[in-house]
Computed example of a mutant assay.
Amino acid sequence: MKSSHNVKQSPTSSSERASVEIRLSPERIVRFLGWVVVGLAAAHFLGQFSKHVLGYGSLKGMIPLFDLDLEFNIPSLYSGLSLIGCAMLLGAIALLKKQKRDRYLRHWQGLSLIFLLMGVDEIIELHERTIKPLRNALNATGIFYFTWVILGFVLVVLLAIAYRKFTLSLPPKTRNRFILAASLFLLGTLGIELIGGYYAYIYGKENLIYSLWVALEEGLEMAGILVFIYALLTYLRSLSDSITIHFERSLSAPTNN
Rank of each mutant, 00 (worst) to 15 (best):
K165H: 09
K98Y: 09
V30M: 07
A253Q: 13
P254E: 08
K100S: 13
F144V: 10
R103E: 12
L117M: 15
S50A: 15
D241P: 12
R175W: 01
P172V: 12
L126K: 02
L134W: 10
L95C: 10
P172K: 06
Q48D: 11
Q109D: 03
I150V: 15
V36A: 10
Y145F: 12
S25F: 02
K60Y: 15
S25Q: 09
L208R: 07
P64T: 06
T174W: 09
M1F: 10
L158A: 13
L77G: 08
V154P: 03
L111P: 02
I93Y: 00
F49P: 00
T130Y: 11
K173L: 13
L117N: 08
L116M: 11
A42P: 09
S250V: 13
F146I: 11
T189E: 13
L233K: 07
V30G: 06
L116G: 11
Q48T: 08
T12G: 14
R23W: 04
A94G: 04
T141S: 13
T12P: 01
T234G: 02
E128D: 09
R103N: 12
L83F: 13
I150N: 05
R177A: 12
S112G: 13
A137C: 02
L33V: 02
I192M: 10
P75K: 08
L138C: 03
I202P: 06
V156S: 11
R31T: 11
A215H: 03
G142W: 06
I243P: 02
F144P: 08
Y235K: 04
Y203D: 08
V154Q: 04
R129S: 13
L113S: 07
G219V: 00
D102M: 01
L220E: 01
G47M: 09
Y230R: 14
S76R: 00
H107M: 15
Y199K: 05
S25Y: 08
L111F: 12
L158H: 05
A215Y: 00
S15L: 11
L190D: 01
L40H: 02
E27M: 09
R164Y: 15
F45L: 13
P133Y: 10
I225M: 06
I22P: 07
S82Q: 11
N6C: 15
G39W: 07
G188F: 03
I202Q: 15
I22N: 05
A160F: 12
